[in-house]
Amino acid sequence: MTTVTSPLAGTAIGLAAVPDPVFSGAMVGPGTAIDPVREPSEAVAPVDGVIVSLHPHAFVVVDGNGHGVLTHLGIDTVQLNGQGFELLVNKGDTVTRGQAVVRWNPADVEAAGKSPICPIVALEASADALSELAEGEVKAGDSLFNWA
């Protein structure tokens, strides 16, 4: 069992509320989404593991169980070409839950015309593998869901 914790402070709103059909339809995998607080912050690792994919707007951490967790910072933020995002780790780094990975400002993303909503996805998981999905206000480090 892997407990996936929130990489951000905000409101857990569920994937269905994400304004992107790839995420809202759980095509990438099941999970939830965070509507982040609109202030400069650091997105932190949701599990202990290795950074296997790292972009300014998104990262994947694979834990010791082989579970890959995608944190996507905003929607269509790839179009910002990294502007407003600061990488704090490198691909291949081993990180611990709660360790800062990317510094960003959701308010700047919104000002650039993009949604700051952040999908947190269990890659290659079945929907019934997840339990105890968080709802409502969360702080970085709070439990988001359990992955069997």
Rank of each mutant, 00 (worst) to 15 (best):
45 A>K: 01
45 A>S: 14
45 A>W: 06
45 A>N: 02
45 A>C: 06
46 P>T: 00
46 P>R: 00
47 V>P: 12
47 V>M: 06
47 V>D: 05
47 V>Y: 07
47 V>F: 07
48 D>H: 05
48 D>N: 11
48 D>C: 01
48 D>L: 03
49 G>I: 08
49 G>M: 01
49 G>Y: 07
49 G>P: 09
50 V>Y: 00
50 V>W: 00
50 V>P: 00
50 V>K: 12
50 V>M: 08
51 I>T: 05
51 I>L: 15
51 I>W: 03
52 V>W: 01
52 V>H: 03
52 V>R: 10
53 S>P: 00
53 S>L: 14
53 S>C: 07
53 S>Y: 13
53 S>F: 12
54 L>S: 06
54 L>Q: 07
54 L>W: 01
54 L>F: 02
54 L>E: 01
54 L>V: 02
54 L>A: 07
55 H>E: 10
55 H>D: 01
56 P>F: 00
57 H>M: 00
57 H>F: 01
57 H>S: 01
58 A>F: 04
58 A>S: 13
58 A>I: 04
58 A>C: 04
58 A>G: 05
59 F>Q: 03
59 F>M: 05
59 F>H: 02
59 F>W: 07
59 F>N: 05
59 F>E: 07
60 V>T: 15
60 V>C: 06
60 V>P: 04
60 V>R: 09
60 V>G: 09
60 V>K: 09
61 V>G: 02
61 V>E: 02
61 V>P: 02
61 V>Y: 08
62 V>P: 03
62 V>D: 10
62 V>G: 05
62 V>Q: 11
63 D>F: 08
63 D>I: 07
63 D>V: 05
63 D>N: 11
64 G>I: 00
64 G>S: 11
64 G>M: 01
64 G>K: 09
64 G>P: 00
64 G>N: 09
65 N>E: 11
65 N>F: 10
65 N>I: 02
65 N>S: 11
65 N>C: 08
65 N>T: 11
65 N>V: 06
66 G>Y: 05
66 G>I: 05
67 H>Y: 04
67 H>R: 11
67 H>W: 07
68 G>H: 08
68 G>C: 08
68 G>R: 08
69 V>Q: 10
69 V>I: 15
69 V>R: 11
69 V>F: 07
70 L>Q: 14
70 L>G: 13
70 L>E: 13
71 T>M: 03
71 T>V: 13
71 T>W: 03
71 T>P: 00
71 T>K: 03
72 H>V: 14
72 H>Q: 13
72 H>W: 12
73 L>H: 08
73 L>F: 04
73 L>G: 04
73 L>N: 05
74 G>N: 14
74 G>H: 11
74 G>D: 13
75 I>K: 05
75 I>H: 06
75 I>E: 06
75 I>V: 14
76 D>C: 08
76 D>T: 10
76 D>K: 10
76 D>W: 10
76 D>Q: 09
76 D>I: 09
77 T>E: 08
77 T>V: 09
78 V>C: 11
79 Q>N: 15
79 Q>D: 15
79 Q>S: 15
79 Q>I: 12
80 L>R: 15
80 L>H: 13
80 L>F: 13
80 L>S: 14
81 N>M: 14
81 N>I: 07
81 N>E: 15
81 N>R: 14
81 N>P: 06
81 N>Q: 15
82 G>F: 13
82 G>W: 12
